[in-house]
Design a protein around this nucleic acid. Structure first.
Lengths: 189, 189, 189, 189
DNA sequence: GCTTAATCGAGACGGTACGTCGTGTCTTTTC
DNA sequence: GAAAAGACACGACGTACCGTCTCGATTAAGC
């Protein structure tokens, strides 16, 4: 018999809900199986670890509402970036995503294989979109053509990530300040 | 009898060694007790969780070789920052510190109390030193007086952290580029 | 399509071999199916339990070499019985039959339905043969006509069974002694 | 800490009760632990198998009501034996003992180590008592001095066992007949 | 000889129990 | 009189089988 899609969905949903309710440390395979109405073996058959289940749950969520994945490009780089980073701040502050995201981060920290898959399937595509927007700005003359776009992405987004990770204050105003300062630095060279 | 310092040291050492050998996920209180030649109760008596033990093990390490904690201040901000960030890159790449640091990060991710203690006892003092160096640069006219120093610290250090966290490439050259671009941005405004 | 005889044979053979290798407790339907190169459903379709498979494997073995089933009747009851009981001792001591027989006994102990089928299809016919030989002795005047033949059968065979069951010493000499003493008792009344 | 006697008793009682309720095949360590209010590990720590638990439960029962263990000796061997065998028939027919006894028998069938312990700690002492009664009869001239007492014990008791094992009819009258015929045989030689 | 329905192998499924490991608490024994 | 040693109730682990259930792919019977 081939893989049951109903079970797959139920497992991913259960994992996502449970991690929000009890946190990653108290998330158990048994709990996921019970909530999903599924045998434990069905989980072990298809995923190597609870981190992997969580990752797939994330992936499913990211792929579901398939809007246009590209970043906005109105021609005004600074305005567009502020918009995007403010949205990022909002998402990181949303309690519905905070717990699962912390869980996934913790899972990746201690599982290089999972981290590699994350990098490949979620992080890299997102970074490509970001670089694409910056390249478009270069072509429009809003950014020097010799600017290092990978460095630019890190300068713009990692401060947000740092504050989220350590539960520090994370406001839209901070996002604006990051965009202004980072862009100034990139243009100055 | 009051707290046995020999046991305390043995426990912290065992925790530090074990986390390097088996990783945080497989680190157990029983394992630490066995390796330290100590009863489990002795650990439970003095620490609330294995994350707390790990944190203390870290603290002990940080405090042991008590050199001058201040960041170098030769008068040349850019050179000083490159020196410090290159040292940070080297430390993050050292396998002796990589595993324990990842473990501690994972512990904090799922334990806000631990994260708060970390922020208070390790992170805040370090950020204070960084801000002090930047303030000194302001006084020397190397940085505008209205620059946001908290933002500056994040712009400078969080890109390194991001790359370490996701096991991306982390080189001294990247550290230099971050310093140059971030400083340019801070000066331009 | 009707029942595949090749599969049936393969299943019975696999069950018989496996029970000799791993014992009844570790005998599994999955193991039998795998060894026989057969789907599990093919076993469940035709047998209600692993005890029943084992029983059929036994039946197949008992029926294969269809010699004359009757007990020897030379006219000398004591000599004939000694011959038969010595043969029983030899069979019970043969390691090829010991393991499967213990398995079947264990299966029957906890499955009255199986026990009833055993009694009907294997035990009763055998007891009938034994009674027939004793009746022949009665007719020849070697045994009193009022002797209880069912009691006689138990007196003669159950001591062997007892010693086999508890893995006690079981020798041809013991068989002889049983025959002599039991016959003496039966004749004395 | 040393072994908890309360847990030990609770486990043996639970095992005994459960085997009577669900039978040996459906008796589980988890079930025993749950019924006894005990962790599974406490069972695994002290017993190697569920058969061993059952055996100890039996042993505890046998040793509890420590009446005079000797068989009755009124001077009349035949009467005494009939008394004892009728009592055995009654016990074998008592549903309270039937299930546990079948369970123990099944356990021993597939576990030689358990069978050896049974032989040593329960069967051998009982056989010694039986032989003692028969030896007393020899001294009283009711049995020939050259009679094989081990054979005698098997002739007397194993027919009962056989009928119990195969769920055949087992009556006091059968016990009497066995005693009469077996004794006649033993005396005749 | 062609269809067609039962049977086959394979193996996924929801479950139960396995035997092990670790948790945090508690008690005993030793130094 | 605190520390080691480790038993305890508990809960989760990851595995093995249970008995049921779909899957195509034969395969022999009856049209």
């Amino acid at each position: 018999m081939r893989r049951s899609d109903a079970s797959r969905r139920a497992i991913l949903l259960a994992a996502f809900e449970l991690v929000g309710e009890v946190g990653y440390a108290k998330l158990t395979i048994e709990g996921i199986a019970a909530r999903a109405g599924v045998g434990k073996q069905t989980i072990y058959r298809w995923w190597p670890s609870k981190g992997a289940v969580l990752f797939d749950a994330f992936l499913a969520l990211s792929e579901d509402p398939q809007g246009d994945p590209a970043l906005p490009d109105t021609g005004d780089l600074e305005a567009d970036l502020k918009l995007v980073l403010r949205a990022t701040v909002a998402e990181l502050s949303d309690p519905r995503y905070d717990a699962p995201m912390r869980a996934l981060t913790a899972a990746m920290l201690n599982d290089p294989a999972l981290a590699a898959e994350y990098e490949q399937r979620l992080d890299a595509p997102m970074r490509a979109l970001k670089r694409a927007r910056l390249r478009s700005a270069q072509e429009a003359g809003q950014l020097p053509s010799e600017a290092d776009l990978d460095l630019a992405v890190d300068l713009l987004w990692s401060p947000l990530m740092r504050r989220w990770l350590e539960r520090a204050e994370l406001t839209p105003a901070f996002a604006d300040a990051v965009v202004e300062t980072a862009l100034a630095g990139l243009r100055a060279r």
